Amino acid sequence: MNRYSIEEFVKNTEQVDKGEGFFELETPRMLEVNLESLVWAKAGSMVAYHGKIKFEREGVLEHGIGAMFKKALTGEGASLMKATGQGKLYLADSGKKIIILHLQNEAIYVNGNDLLAFEPTIKHEIKLMKKVAGMMAGGLFNVRCEGTGLVAITAHYEPLTLRVTPNKPIITDPNATVAWSGSLQPDFQTDISLKTFIGRGSGESIQMRFEGDGFVIVQPYEETYMTAQS
């Protein structure tokens, strides 16, 4: 067979069932959901599906989210949709690498831009980091995922996990911070010397400080956030 033939290309790239269950990594950057009832996913992350699946954007008041988030949720950073029905659903987000985590009565905070999908058994709550809302364009959202089930998150390139211990706080760039353990509550600090040294916008000097016992996941890339439109 010609190594560059269409037949050979299809053979090398076609979808193959691996029998891994609800979430299956078809490629490092494409998630297959074997849908039987419901899955939550990032709005706009659907690339293909087959079967009978209905998509619906998350309601503003769903799960107790107050009306104060209405404007903020019009931005893509923390917008979710629910897919209901039966079939196979394929999700991706700008070619980012996908990480599947199985929570076992645990909690994890995920940057709103880096949450791809999660099982309906996972409770989620969208939070706006009010302290940085005035300092960064559009503020910074995170989603607290808690319970038992699968969560799929994304990262640009290969993520790095840093351990946080009581005697070893970790400071990160908010734009490069993907997720952190549910036991940690980051503080925000401004480094004026860093701001003057690199000569960038005001958001660049804001840092997240993690203290306690847990972990934080960072990526070798600075995500940019758009201000939500009214």
Rank of each mutant, 00 (worst) to 15 (best):
L73C: 10
Y225D: 01
E62W: 05
R163V: 11
I217V: 15
Q219M: 11
M68E: 15
T84C: 07
L38T: 13
F188E: 04
S193T: 13
K97G: 01
E26P: 00
P166I: 06
Y49D: 02
I100L: 14
L89P: 08
A48M: 13
L115D: 00
M68W: 12
Q189D: 10
V47L: 09
E158G: 06
K123M: 09
P220I: 10
P220W: 00
Q86K: 15
P120F: 06
K131R: 12
V143Q: 04
E146M: 08
L115G: 02
H124Y: 14
H124T: 07
M1E: 14
V47Q: 12
E62V: 09
W180T: 05
L103T: 05
K11E: 15
W180K: 03
F55E: 06
K70V: 02
P166W: 08
K168Q: 14
F23P: 06
R209A: 05
E36V: 09
M46K: 13
D191W: 04
K131Q: 14
R29F: 11
G139I: 06
D187L: 04
T148W: 10
E14W: 00
A78R: 08
Y109C: 01
K52E: 13
E32K: 15
E106S: 07
D191G: 01
M129R: 00
Y90L: 13
A117L: 02
R200N: 11
K54Y: 03
N175M: 14
W40G: 03
E26H: 00
P166L: 04
Y4P: 02
V16S: 09
M136N: 00
R3P: 12
I108E: 02
T190M: 15
L116A: 05
M46A: 09
T27E: 10
E56Y: 00
T74S: 12
Y4F: 11
A137L: 11
R209T: 03
D93K: 11
F23E: 06
T172G: 02
M135I: 05
V216W: 03
G75Y: 00
L103W: 02
A107S: 15
K131A: 15
N2A: 12
H102I: 04
D114C: 15
I6M: 13
I122A: 07
G95L: 09
K123A: 15
L150R: 12
G182L: 05
Y221N: 11
N175F: 10
M1P: 11
Q207A: 07
A179G: 01
P166T: 04
G95I: 05
D213C: 05
K195E: 02
A92F: 04
V33W: 01
I65W: 05
P186F: 04
F69T: 00
V33S: 01
L140T: 03
A92N: 14
G134P: 12
G75P: 01
